[in-house]
Simulated assay, not measured.
Amino acid sequence: MVMVAPIPTNTSPPRMTTEHDILILAQWLSPAFPVGAFAYSHGLETAIHSGAIATACDLQDWLTCVLSHGSGRNDCILLRAAYRSGPQAALDEVNQTALAVSASSERIRETQLQGSAFSQTTSAIWGSDKTEFCYPVAVGHAAAQLWLDVDLTAAFYLHGFVSNLVSAAVRAVPLGQTEGQRVLAALIPMCDQIVQETQCTTLDDLSSTAFLSDIAAMRHETLQPRIFRS
């Protein structure tokens, strides 16, 4: 039987290598990790249904806005806040803030269910806390417990976030696999830019002007027929 070594606490000195960080994060934020990300479109299905997204260029423009002015940037800020939160009360405040900035009931359910599923799996394998936090909060908290590099964690998180939305669009528009991967590759510099820009942010820096994305998420609640949960 393979035994998993116990993880260090937040008061322990860092001992993981960068290579180790990358491998763990690649597992956590891969499509194979059981958080059910494939079931959510983050309102993208509504935009596709309305005709607002019909081409790869439309998709890239939409996701650029979501990343830089909406959920992508906010999730990165929340992840960082959870990573450095310390006491449970501070962590709870970060989680409540994550719920408060979610634009619709489906967005709340999306982040809560994925966060809970993520926490259950990391707790079972790595021994981290089993929580009911929102997804970026759960990832940030688990990364802090394993002393994973926070910038790497944020970068992997954003890449996983946008990868899932590209995958949803490939299925729903539909787009070719190559077109989808081309969009994803074009968004990598944006992910890196957001990671750099959010290094010194706090919860006071949360904001969103991705209004069309937020409205699409709200309208998805009554969209029929639909294949995604958000």
Score class of each variant (00 low, 15 high):
V2N: 13
P6V: 03
T9D: 11
T9W: 02
N10W: 03
T11F: 10
P14M: 04
R15M: 14
R15D: 13
E19M: 07
E19Y: 04
H20I: 06
A26T: 09
P34F: 04
Y40C: 06
S41K: 09
H42Y: 15
E45N: 05
H49V: 14
A52H: 14
A56L: 03
C57K: 11
D58Q: 05
Q60H: 06
L63K: 09
L63R: 10
H69F: 10
G70F: 07
G72I: 06
G72E: 07
R73C: 05
D75M: 10
I77W: 02
L78F: 02
S85C: 07
P87H: 00
P87G: 00
A89N: 04
A90H: 14
L91K: 07
D92V: 13
N95V: 11
Q96E: 13
T97G: 04
A98Q: 08
A98T: 13
S104N: 02
R107H: 13
I108S: 06
T111L: 13
L113I: 07
S116V: 11
F118Y: 08
F118A: 04
S119R: 07
A124L: 14
K130C: 14
K130G: 04
T131C: 13
E132N: 13
F133E: 05
Y135E: 04
A138T: 06
V139Y: 06
A142F: 04
A142R: 07
A143R: 05
A144T: 12
Q145R: 12
L146D: 03
L148Q: 09
L148M: 15
D149V: 00
V150Y: 07
D151M: 08
T153V: 13
T153I: 15
A154Q: 02
A154I: 05
A155M: 11
G160R: 11
G160K: 12
V162R: 15
N164Q: 15
S167Y: 09
L175G: 06
T178Y: 04
V183Q: 05
L184G: 00
A185G: 00
P189V: 07
M190N: 06
M190R: 12
Q193E: 13
I194K: 06
V195P: 09
E197K: 14
Q199I: 09
Q199W: 02
C200K: 14
T202M: 03
L203T: 01
D204S: 09
L206P: 02
S207G: 01
S208Y: 00
F211M: 03
L212Q: 12
S213W: 00
S213N: 08
D214P: 00
I215W: 01
I215K: 03
A216V: 01
L223R: 04
P225V: 00
R226G: 00
S230Q: 05
